[in-house]
Structures are given as C-alpha cells and as structure tokens.
Amino acid sequence: MKSGKVWILISLSALAACRTPQMSSEVQAAKLAADKARSEAIEVKAPIAAEAEFNSAQAFYDKASEDFNAGSEADVIANYGEAASGFLEAVEIALESRMEAEDAIIEADRAIERSERIVEDAISSVTGGQ
C-alpha cells in the first residue's frame, strides 16, 4: 500500500515535468535581454527614480512570463522585447535624474561651504584672525 502511494507521486511528478514548456532559443534570448535590462534598472534604482517607466516595463515582463508559463507563446517574445526596452528607458531616465540630483547636491555643498567661509571671514575680521 505504501509503495503504491510512492509510485503515484512519482508518476504525477513525471507528468508535471512533461507539461513544463520548453523555451525556444528566441524566447530564451528575449528573456535574457529583458532580465539584463531589468538588472541594470534595479542597479540604478529605477524602481524609485523612474517608477512609472519601470512599472510599465515590469508589466510587460510579468505578462510575458505568465503567457510563457501558460504555454501561450504568441506574444512572449514581443512582450519581453517591450519589457527590455522599457527597462532601458527607465535606466536612461534614472541616470539623467541622478546626474541632475548630483549636480544640485554639489551646488548645495558649495553654497554651504561659501556660507561657512563668510562666517569664518566675519569672525576673523572682528577678532583680527586670532
């Protein structure tokens, strides 16, 4: 009785394995490109810096994955392609935004330093630099 149950489980697993869709090389390439772009986007913090663009690309990515898992490959490559280009757009926007923020912070630092220098000069002008 016990060994019968084990056999049933083994048979079900084998059936499930047979049902997992096999990826064609074109789908594999599309998914790889989307994954790479997604990693870059996460690297530059695009989920926050370019939230709308990242989420839009993520929606294409999720749809492609769902369709593939459901065995419906019709739009999988196209959706991974949309996802990859969306993620890259998010990367670009995040990098541009990051650069602008960096410049603004550098300017803020300079303004603070200038203010500190003015205070030092003012103090030294009334204490004779002592």
């Binding site: 603004a104 912070i105 803020a108 630092d109 603070i112």
Partner: peptide, 29 residues
C-alpha cells in the same frame, strides 16, 4: 536649514529618489 535640507537631499539620493534629492538640494541652495 541649508545643511538640514542638503542632508535630506543626500538621504533621498541614497534611496534613489533623485527627483526629490534634486528638489531638496535646490531648496537648500
């Protein structure tokens, strides 16, 4: 206030909220 806003800007920058970081840095200036 300048220093406070600049520090907040840096924090936002670290979190990746570059737009907010820029806004705070400009406000600091």
């Amino acid at each position: 206030k300048m220093v406070e806003l600049r520090d907040m800007s840096r924090e936002a920058f670290e979190e990746g909220d570059y737009a907010e970081a820029k806004r705070l840095a400009l406000e600091s200036q």
